[in-house]
Design a protein around this nucleic acid. Structure first.
Length: 324
DNA sequence: GCGACAG
DNA sequence: ATCTTGTCGC
């Protein structure tokens, strides 16, 4: 079996090409661009990216809301964008392109990269094995911090009773943006490098704890599951925020957990921890929900986060602040 | 009015 | 996640 790797599409390059293909006198919408990328849910990401300095030199004034409302260009105002559109021959009435249909470009030729990633996630999900965890003596915890466009991943080796044994950090370029449900493509390159470095050092972990979800994911392919399948090793996901599914978290006591249900299936647990935090625990790979819950409860006695993950967070953050 | 989407 | 001052809530 070859070295575990992940291929990441160049979304910024695709977006630049899409923007540059919109001729003067025409407009498109955030939604249409998101669909061209292969996922309408990426529209908020499109809006954010177009207002960032990365899109500085692009004709972002040609992207409007689905209502026709003119957007705001990087470093500019809505009025300035409307003036640019008017100069290009677009009729703008009360800050809205009117009628939108007359100017609308929507039929972008793309390979829909996000749709391809969804298919890959479905294939990953098919390979997930839900089974009891092996006996856990050592735990590997993974987290990543960012500095500019560089990811700094930390691997912390801990004993089952929460003693820190070893730790290391690795750096990797962050090529993929954060888009909900595609976290793997942003963080896995750094995680894979960190796990490889730990293996190189001869550190053995019976289970990997990942800062993110396992099967608690629309396509059952959160970053913990994705990592687990690529490495074929037991993983457990622990997220600090809610991604999808429903859980009744009313009146939970510390240490208590409730099922998270998605499409009528229990895919994880919402767990109350110290300081009244709610964690979302789910099996990644070669783990089951009971085992994941038991492990995280044991590592979370008197703390808000599982101790090894807390360390991984601190180690990666510190390394990201320090000069490379 | 709906929904509120990990890092 | 990261950028960042004072400040609202348990």
């Amino acid at each position: 079996m070859g070295k575990a790797e992940i291929e990441v599409p160049d979304l910024p390059r695709t977006l630049r090409a899409l923007l540059l293909s919109i001729p003067a006198g025409r407009v498109t919408t955030y939604r249409a661009l998101a669909e061209a990328l292969g996922d309408p849910g990426a529209a908020p990401f499109i809006a954010q990216w177009l207002s960032s300095s990365e899109a500085e030199d692009l004709p972002v004034h040609r992207v409007v809301h689905a209502s026709g409302a003119v957007g705001r260009a990087w470093g500019g105002t809505q009025d300035e964008a409307a003036a640019k559109l008017a100069r290009e021959g677009v009729r703008v009435v009360g800050s809205r392109v009117d009628p939108l249909a007359r100017y609308f470009v929507w039929d972008f030729p793309t390979d829909r990269p996000l749709a391809r990633l969804q298919e890959e996630q479905a294939r990953i999900a098919d390979q997930v094995i839900l089974a009891p965890l092996p006996e856990v003596e050592t735990i590997g915890a993974l987290d990543v911090a960012y500095r500019d466009s560089e990811a700094v991943a930390a691997f912390v080796l801990a004993s089952a009773d929460g003693e820190l044994i070893e730790h290391l950090t690795v750096r990797a370029p962050a090529l993929f943006p954060y888009i909900p449900t595609y976290l793997s493509y942003r963080e896995l390159p750094a995680y894979l490098a960190a796990v490889a470095a730990a293996a190189e050092a001869g550190w053995e972990a019976d289970v990997l704890l990942v800062d993110g979800n396992g099967i608690l994911h629309p396509r059952r392919a959160g970053v913990a599951s994705h990592l687990g399948v690529l490495l074929d090793r037991p993983t457990v996901g622990v997220a600090k925020g809610h991604l999808c599914g429903h859980a009744n978290t009313e009146g939970m006591a510390i240490g208590e957990w409730r099922p998270v249900v998605l499409d009528e299936e229990t895919v994880g647990a919402a767990m109350r921890t110290d300081r009244n935090r709610t964690l979302f625990v789910s099996p990644g790979h070669r783990a089951d929900l009971d085992g994941a819950i038991g492990l995280i409860q044991a590592l979370t006695a008197g703390t808000a986060l599982p101790v090894p993950l807390q360390w991984a967070h601190e180690v990666s953050a510190e390394a990201a602040h320090a000069p490379s």
